[in-house]
Write a protein that binds this DNA or RNA. Structure first.
Length: 485
RNA sequence: GCUCCCAUCGUCUAGAGGCCUAGGACGGAGCCCUCUCAAGGCUUAAACCCGGGUUCGAAUCCCGGUGGGAGCGCCA
């Protein structure tokens, strides 16, 4: 039997981190077993489902690279089929019309809660041998309820939680079709999973309590229920349910934060699943190694620090052609023109070990792609002093005379200059760095100057000298003495 | 209230009765390296929720407690 898994989000919002992980697990499991991974849009709630959400989910799945094997199924396009199955069930006697009104049900529920009982339908319209039902009240269009078994147990052999036993007496007759004839969730899921040939239902563990009901419907339909794997939820870093406050962000928000999709997948797969001590997995390895035996049944917290670390590992080692497009995307997003600077590959190579995210990389590389708006802030105040002005000026002359603008030559020239003056390299490199980058942090100074190019470097050195001089002339506060560093 | 689920360092986890003096990773601390920031190397602190069983032996199995969570819609 080929494995068929599915991811079945309801389009009421973006693809969040928990959904992305269940989608990933479903995807991996299907790939692992040479099966199929399907996507189903559960949009029977027409009030809350939006096309924008559908698009956002597709966008997130596409960014992560979680492609389904066939066209997505939309529940709203299957109403004909649901109607057919409901008619069958009615005819077969495993479903029945219920004329109880919403008000009546609300009242029943309120009473039960007041009596500290579990709120549930009392079966007042459930037909039984020897039971006489009241005549249908006029003007009320009935809902259809599933006739759940009254006794016996439902045993779920869950792939992650083990055996879970439910007593049928705990279950009531759930509504499978609303008064307007539209089908409801628990029913649609069963019909869809059956029709799509789903063999493994992988979903959030907020669904465990739905599982026995769904199994009962499967049985009533004469179908074999699929296997279930209920994955625990992902909590915020404070252990509370993920909310907008912590990180119930759409996966695309993580793109904006500078994550690589592969890194996201890697972080997510390790949240709840493990393979010994291994932390980093290529997609291929995930597919080869993923299994439910090592999926933890307990909820996990989303740890931003570790996610950053994983992302950094990917940034450092990912093939450049996978990083360039994402880096370019971030540069543009910051209003920078990728064409107005060094080759992106070279910038990435120079920056990747000092940036945990692409956003950080783009921000720290901005000075390569745009002219400096000026020298302000602490770094300039500290390093662009009257003293350093003459230093930079002298250095500019040396560098300007260099026959070849290459990192090695720059390195030698700066080193020689510092040595000749009896200065530590840092004394020279830092003012230089601030002069060309506008800040005290950049790749190694020779690399930085090389990438920036001769023209731009010299122009910036000149500007920095001008700035330092004007500052010392117009200074209305004494220039702070330099502290050694 | 009822049903169901969960429980190892701060976090993610390894652990299927002896290999556990509880391992790895993130984060933290310290040292080294160093032109900045990083990266890297080394060192280090840090956990089996509690109580009963079962057993020669329990982080591992069972029961109870406690603490968290989910569900109980004409939502999905």
């Amino acid at each position: 039997m080929t494995v068929v898994t599915r991811f079945a989000p309801s389009p009421t919002g973006f693809l969040h981190i928990g959904g992305a992980r269940t989608a990933l697990f479903s995807y991996l499991y299907a790939r692992r077993h040479g099966g199929k991974f399907l996507l189903r849009i559960e949009d029977t709630d027409r009030e809350r489902s939006t096309q924008a959400a559908v698009d956002a989910i597709f966008e997130g799945m596409a960014w992560l690279g979680l492609h389904s094997d066939v066209e997505p199924v939309y529940q709203t396009r299957r109403f004909e089929r649901y109607r057919e199955v409901i008619a069958q069930m009615l005819a077969a006697g495993c479903a029945y019309p219920c004329y109880a009104t919403k008000e009546e049900l609300d009242q029943l529920r309120a009473e039960q809660i007041a009596r500290k009982q579990k709120p549930r339908y009392d079966g007042r319209w459930r037909p039984e041998p020897g039971k006489t039902l009241p005549p249908p009240p006029p003007g009320v269009s009935p809902v259809v309820r599933f006739k759940n078994p009254l006794d016996g147990k439902v045993v779920v052999r869950d792939l992650v939680k083990g055996e879970i036993v439910f007593d049928n007496r705990e279950l009531d007759d759930l509504i499978i079709a609303r008064a307007d004839g539209t089908p409801t969730y628990n029913f649609c899921v069963v019909v869809d999973d059956m029709d799509m040939g789903v063999t493994h239902v992988i979903r959030g563990d907020d669904h465990v309590n739905n599982t026995p009901r769904q199994i009962n419907i499967f049985k009533a339909l004469g179908a074999t229920p699929p296997q279930y794997a209920h994955v625990s939820m992902i909590l915020g870093s404070d252990g509370a349910k993920l909310s907008k406050r912590h990180g119930a962000l759409g996966v695309m928000e993580y793109r904006a934060m500078g994550f690589l999709p592969e890194a996201m997948l890697n972080y997510l797969v390790r949240l709840g699943w493990s393979h010994g001590d291994q932390e980093l997995f290529t997609l291929k390895e995930m597919i080869e190694k993923f299994d439910f035996d090592h999926v933890s049944p307990s909820p996990a917290r989303f740890d931003m620090e570790k996610a950053y670390w994983v992302n950094h590992q990917y940034l450092k080692t990912a093939p450049l052609n996978a990083v360039v497009p994402e880096f370019e995307w971030h540069l543009r997003r910051l209003g920078l023109d990728p064409a107005r600077g060094p080759r992106l590959e070279d910038v990435i190579l120079a920056q990747r070990e000092r940036c945990r995210t692409l956003l950080e990389m783009a921000e720290k590389s901005a000075f390569f792609f745009a002219e400096l708006s000026g020298y302000d802030g602490k770094d300039a105040a500290k390093h662009l002093t009257a003293d350093s002005a003459s230093l930079i000026e002298a250095l500019a002359e040396v560098l300007g005379a260099l026959p070849h603008w290459e990192a090695a030559a720059l390195h030698a020239a700066i080193g020689g200059f510092a040595e000749a003056r009896g200065l530590a390299l840092g004394k020279v490199a830092q003012p230089l760095r601030v002069a060309v980058a506008g800040m005290a942090v950049s790749p190694p100074i020779d690399q930085t100057l090389f990438l920036l190019g001769r023209e731009r470097t010299l122009a910036r050195l000149e500007a920095a000298v001008g700035f330092a001089r004007s500052k010392s002339i117009h200074a209305d506060s004494p220039v702070k003495p330099e502290h050694g560093d």
